[in-house]
Each structure stands twice: as C-alpha cells, then as structure tokens.
Design a protein around this nucleic acid. Structure first.
Lengths: 340, 340
DNA sequence: CTGAAAGCGCTTACAG
DNA sequence: CTGAAAGCGCTTACAG
C-alpha cells in the first residue's frame, strides 16, 4: 500500500503534475473539464497531500513551537491551550515543549525547533538563558516572548503589568485596614514574581509602611509551597493579618495551612491570590485574586507572532503590556471584622 | 543571510555532500583528516540540519501527534505533559491538538497530522467518531488509544480498569456502613464514566442494595458541574450519606456545595473522588480518591506507540489495562460518626 | 576510503 | 489553457 502522490493522480487523470497541483491549490485557472478529471482522480485514489514535501519546497511549515516551563501547571496549561486554539484558527499546528525550568532541556528543544523549521516560536522562559533566543533569531525564526520577560531588546514581548497588579492587590488590603501584610512570592529570578513584589512595596511605601523582609517568603508556584510558606509566616511573633500570594495554587495551599492552625479566612487572615484559575471562585471562601487575561495573553502572543511570520509588521519590536484586574470575593475583609 | 546547507559545507570543506552527510550522521567510516575538515566547516558556517528535508527523504518525521479533548483539564494536562516527556526522551517531538470534544475539530486535526506525516498518534477520543482512526490506520500511521476506549478492534489501547476502580470506590463506602450512596458521573457516552458506574452498580448489587436512578447525576468533569449535581442530590427526600464522584474537580465542587448547605464532610457526607490530582490531598478535608497512574498511562501509551513505529511488535493488537488504587484520606468516614 | 547522482513529493517560473 | 523541468536539502545505493 504505497502512498499516492501527485504524480499518481496526474497519470490517472491524464494530465501533468503541474495541473494537479494547481487544481489542488486553486492557484491558476484550469479548464472545468480537466479540473473534473483531476478531482475524480484525487477522489478515486484517495490522495492526501504531503506537507513535508510542500514545506521543503515552500520554506514554510505552518508550524509554531511553544516552549512552556511546565504544561501541567494550570496557568501554562490554560495559556498553551489558548495558543493552540488561536494557532489552529490561523492554520498553524503547534509543537509543544516543556522546558521543566531546565535550561539544557530548553536548549535542546530550541535546536529541535530550528531543525524542524518551525515558522515561529512562542517562548515562556525557563529563566536566564538568552542564547537560545539568539539562536532562533539568528536563524530568522520570529520569536514572541510571553509572560516572563527576558533581558533582550530585540524581541517582541507580551507581558502582564505585574508591578501594577502587585500594587493593586496590596492596595486592596491596605484599604481594608491591614498594615501587617505578608507576601508569598514565586522563585526570585522570575520577572513576574519580582515585579509583583515591587508593586507590593510601592503600595506599602505610599502609606508609609516599612517593608519587612521577614514577611516575605518564597514559594515555587505549587500548592505545597504555599502551605509551607504560610506555616512559617504564622510562626512570626507579629502575625500578619493579611497576605498577598503570587498565584492561586499557593494561595489555596496557604488557606489550607491557615485553617489547620485554627485561623478563619478572611476574619483572622485576608488572602489575595493571583491568576484567577477556575478553582479560585469555587474554593471556600472564594478567593479574592488578580485575574490574568489568559485569552488576551495567548491571543496577543499568537497574533503578534503571525504578523511577524508574515513579515507584515515593521522592524521595530513591540512590547505589549496587558492589564490584570482585581476580583474581590470572600477571602478578604475589613481588618477586625468578626464572623457573622 | 541564507540558510547554510550541506552543500555549502561540502564546498567549504572541499569534499562531497555524501561525505558531509556521513560525518554528520556517523554513518560510515571517514578518514580522520577529512572528518576534521568537515567538522571545521560545519562549525565555521554554523550548519544546522534541516529535518524537513531529512524527513522527506527518510519517510519519517520523528514526530508524534497527540489528540486530547482539552489540555486545560488537569488530568489531560498531566497526561499530555508526561507523554511529551517520554517522547522527548526517545527523540520524538509532539504536535498537540485539543479536540474540544468536537468531532469536526478532531477530524481536522487528524487530517493535519496525516499531511504532516507524523510517525504515530496517541489518541484520547472526543467520543463517537471511529472514521478518524481508520483514516490514520489506512495511511499506515500507528495509533494508540489512551484513556477512553473506542469501538474498534484493530487498534492498541491503554486503559484504566475503570470498572474495578468504580467497584473499589463504592466498596470502600459500603464498608464504612453507607447504604444510600449517590454517584456523580461524567458524560454518559464516555467509556471511563460508564464503566466506573458499572463498578458502582456491581458493588451495590453484591450487597443486595437496589440501584436507584435518582441517586445518579451526570456532570461534565468540570468543577462547576460537581457543585450543581451535588445541590440537586441534596434536594432528594432521602439524602445520600455518601457520594462517589467520577473526578476530583467535580468532587471538590461537590464538597463546596455540601458545605454551603451546612453539611460537614465527612461526618454528614462521605465523598470519594477520582484521579488524585495534586490538589486532592490539599483540600480540606483531604479527598479520599482513586489514584490514576498518570505516569504509567503516559509511559505505556508512548512506549507502545514507539514499538509500533519501529515495526518491532507483532501484528496482533494489545490491550493494556492499568490498575487504579484507592487512596483513603479524610473525606470519608464511618456512617454515623460524629465530629470529634 | 570517497563521490556522482537519483530521488523523496511537492511548487512554480518559464515557455508555448 | 497546459506542461516539462528545476529545485527545495537531504540520504543512500552504486561504483570505483
């Protein structure tokens, strides 16, 4: 059972491969009778195009590479899924790679993507390594960096306004009368984490509240680390009355820890999360959080990349900064409120 | 800045492309001096292999297609991620497609995968459609069906023993003295859901407990639907004292609903979930659940597929059935127990 | 020990 | 209105 090629179709239809190609792609006028013959042959033989051959010839694969740190993290899963969606709508397939926050693995993936001649790459950094991006750029492969900034000028980026989001979250807590506000961060080398903390500091300093190192604990964006960090915070002599946590998974972990210590959220402890993953609204108490515009992030990144791949856009690089929005639910309340 | 090809390297090194190809792939002996010249040229020009050309020539793309219903569902995200992992270890890239439980989209993806000449496909069905698989098979592309069974004989499958898992979950509840046990299912046309319910029925009937239609509610595996289903169940005249819920997300939703109704889990209501996603152990009370062997599922599917792609295995199709294990935590207790 | 050449399955500039 | 042929970048059977 050999593959049927355009040549087989040509023979069957009694025309040239040129003509077959043109009727398949509707790329030049073909006499209706001839066309019909070709279509019948196509049908009869069950012809299937071979994109590999097409790609080799055309120099384009209609494929984009997507590198994420870990697609089993709900945030990235959601983003990856949307990117896949938008790409699909535009006729692109996506090759997915999990870098596992491991820069060797990331380098490997990039090399594979270059070898496979992807038309473009959407890149969520595993941190540090900029050479990988330069490899891509050096091979004329457009790149859009999403979510995590990289120290590289000549690349398009789509980011959240993390500083502002951190400020907003903290501001909300300050407005509720809290003064001793802790913060559970992500890994310190990631730009989103750093910037959210900067926003937190700005909000505090605006109110003349001193920044306290002992109220900051770093997690790794996973559930467990939120639990652990919270437990440590609750050991402090001066217990915080509120905590800003840089993603929802850790926030849920932190709420669990608080409850285990006999604290009631929000009455003893107000909690603000980050991301607004589906479960945030469902947990008890429903989580006050900063909603990330997943869709917009994915869509902006994808359409920006597609623009670049088409070579339509100008030379200068774009920085798209998206806004997050505070969603107030039940996990925060006025300091000193009492359970009804 | 033109791409550098094997030909450029050959000229630079003063040898034939044949030789260059052989040193790159280490596929025949080359005189050390010649080899060195080639390696230097490779280095100097910054040669990068072009897999597309290689694929066309070799008839293999080192790429596998993965179709999942929805990669933003934590279960599939986890499985997809592991498959990607194992594939990577074996030198395969994965093209990911979300079928969205939409059979048209699924068909589209399959067509793309065929056109892109993937070496194999791992397929988690969006339900119903078998023609898609036949297309694949008809094009000599090996397929492994995972998680959800399909009504097709001649294909490899890797499944969970869902009937037994359903039985075990229910049996656990029966042993705790429960008799009025509800069940929140997934969509009725999915084999895992159906089979788990069958196990549930078998356990009941073994104890001589009649199956009651009104204790069964269908959800869609999402958080929200668990909440809704639970609310409905609690309206029943005879309230269930226990409920078996076919995935953890719905179980968490159901616990939320129960708590909103003023019920305490597990004292008023025992809950058993399914999947054992990370958050199951973290929720309060920690969820008793059926742990799926994600890793094994992904690994079995991937290695079975790789076997097939290598043409190593025999003609006869394999059915791999994996065991799930009950993990008892805090959401279930003896019927009639009272909070300490 | 090495090379010339065919061929994988397409698209497309050129010619008529 | 249509076709012959080159060429995309590789691998490899064949020959020496």
């Amino acid at each position: 059972m050999k593959r049927v090629t355009i040549k087989d179709v040509a023979i069957e239809a009694g025309v040239s491969v040129t003509t077959v190609s043109h009727v398949i792609n509707e790329t030049r006028y073909v006499n209706p009778d001839t066309k019909l013959k070709v279509q019948n042959a196509l049908e009869k033989l069950g012809y299937r195009p071979n994109s590999v051959a097409r790609s080799l010839r055309m120099g384009t694969t209609k494929t984009i590479g997507l590198i994420v740190p870990d697609a089993s993290n709900l945030f990235f899963a959601e983003v990856a899924r949307k990117i896949e969606d938008f790409g699909y709508q535009q006729g692109y397939s996506v090759i997915l790679g999990n870098s596992d926050n491991d820069s060797d693995k990331q380098t490997n993936y990039i090399n594979t993507l270059i070898a496979k001649q992807v038309d473009g790459v959407i890149f969520i950094s595993a941190g540090g390594e900029v050479q990988d991006l330069q490899q891509l750029l050096g091979n004329n492969i457009p790149v859009v960096v999403a979510d995590r900034d990289v120290p590289l000028e000549m690349v398009d980026v789509v980011l959240l306004d993390n500083e502002k989001a951190g400020y907003d979250a903290t501001h909300h807590l300050l407005n509720l009368g809290h003064e001793c506000i802790a913060c559970i961060t992500g890994p310190n080398d990631l730009s989103p984490s750093m910037l959210r903390v900067e926003g937190y500091r700005r909000a505090l300093s605006e109110r003349g509240i001193a920044f306290r190192e002992d109220l900051i604990k770093a997690g790794d964006f996973r559930f467990k680390s939120g639990e652990v960090a919270m437990r440590e915070l609750l050991k402090q002599s001066c217990r915080p009355t509120a905590v800003f946590i840089l993603n929802d998974m850790m926030a849920i972990g932190a709420m669990t820890a608080a409850r285990k210590e006999g604290l009631s959220v929000p009455y003893d402890l107000s909690v603000v999360g980050f991301d607004d993953i589906e479960i945030a609204s469902a947990v008890i108490p429903a989580l006050t959080t900063i909603a990330q515009p997943f869709d917009k992030l994915a869509e902006s990144a994808t359409s920006l990349l597609i623009e670049r791949m088409k070579g339509e856009s100008t030379q200068e690089k774009k920085r798209i900064i998206l806004d997050a929005t505070l969603v107030v639910r039940e996990s925060t309340c006025q300091r000193g409120s009492v359970d009804a």
